[in-house]
Design a protein around this nucleic acid. Sequence first.
DNA 1: TATTGTTATACTCTATAACTATA
DNA 2: TATAGTTATAGAGTATAACAATA
Lengths: 150, 150
Amino acid sequence: MTSVSELTDHTGFRMRMVSNAVSQAFARKVEAEGVTVAEWVFLRALYNTAPMPPSVLAGSMGMTRGAISKLADRLLEKGLIERTDSPSDKRAHSLSLSAEGQAKVPVLAALADENDAAFFGVLTPAEHRQLDHLLTVLAERSGLRAAPVD
Amino acid sequence: MTSVSELTDHTGFRMRMVSNAVSQAFARKVEAEGVTVAEWVFLRALYNTAPMPPSVLAGSMGMTRGAISKLADRLLEKGLIERTDSPSDKRAHSLSLSAEGQAKVPVLAALADENDAAFFGVLTPAEHRQLDHLLTVLAERSGLRAAPVD
DNA sequence: TATTGTTATACTCTATAACTATA
DNA sequence: TATAGTTATAGAGTATAACAATA
């Protein structure tokens, strides 16, 4: 019989604990740059790619079209992305980084580097590689290819 | 010089991706039991412990008192926790699981087991142990002892 | 004055579904 | 009819800060 005191520690629980701490710290950092974490993921997805319709972004970010639409509105207001109407389909358009957005991505990436260093720097290089490997395996075997957002 | 195409994959980013997928799947599972993930964490924190004032819970869950207050309201409405006024301090009270809450925790824990198995079962036992170890190291060295909530 | 806890306000993220315009 | 995208609505989570009651 299983008594309640034997509640196991769940890997998912522990991962959430670490991941949330990392993300919250990162959120503070990018806030100083005037963007949210979701906006960073959005900008990152557009970096070095051809302009993309929102529907494609929704798929690659693992978000609904409605959520993408709201995010895109904010980024347009901030002047970080641009919208280009499709010449062939009057319903459709593509999104791409503006010059300002283009310039902002490396700045945000540097903050992500800093944040990673602060949290994962406590691991030995071998441990850090191990972790990356395990996360990659988990993402691949679970069919993930998208960006997490919250 | 660093060109934009060399944007590294961040460990924090990858972890968030995996963690979010795990959490979202878990959220679906506990939803069937009528609770949210935050409520599960709350109930779990009260399991097998002495009654706790909300301020202590806030600390151990890494949430503000305001957030705990809202969560506690919901759990009281659902009849899963109980409130006991402090005899010595008329401002204070303690929270504990109701009989129903007590009974619910193992059910939710079983769902967490299932969820862990579904996601981390793709790892070999050795890899799974490695991951647990790494997450524990990260949590400890980052001063985390709390539960993530979002 | 300081502390316990609640409440008010506000924002992000998310999802569902209704809706508009075009195909 | 189907598709691209927007908008409306709602709910969960979070934080800050003002507030009430008590210490």
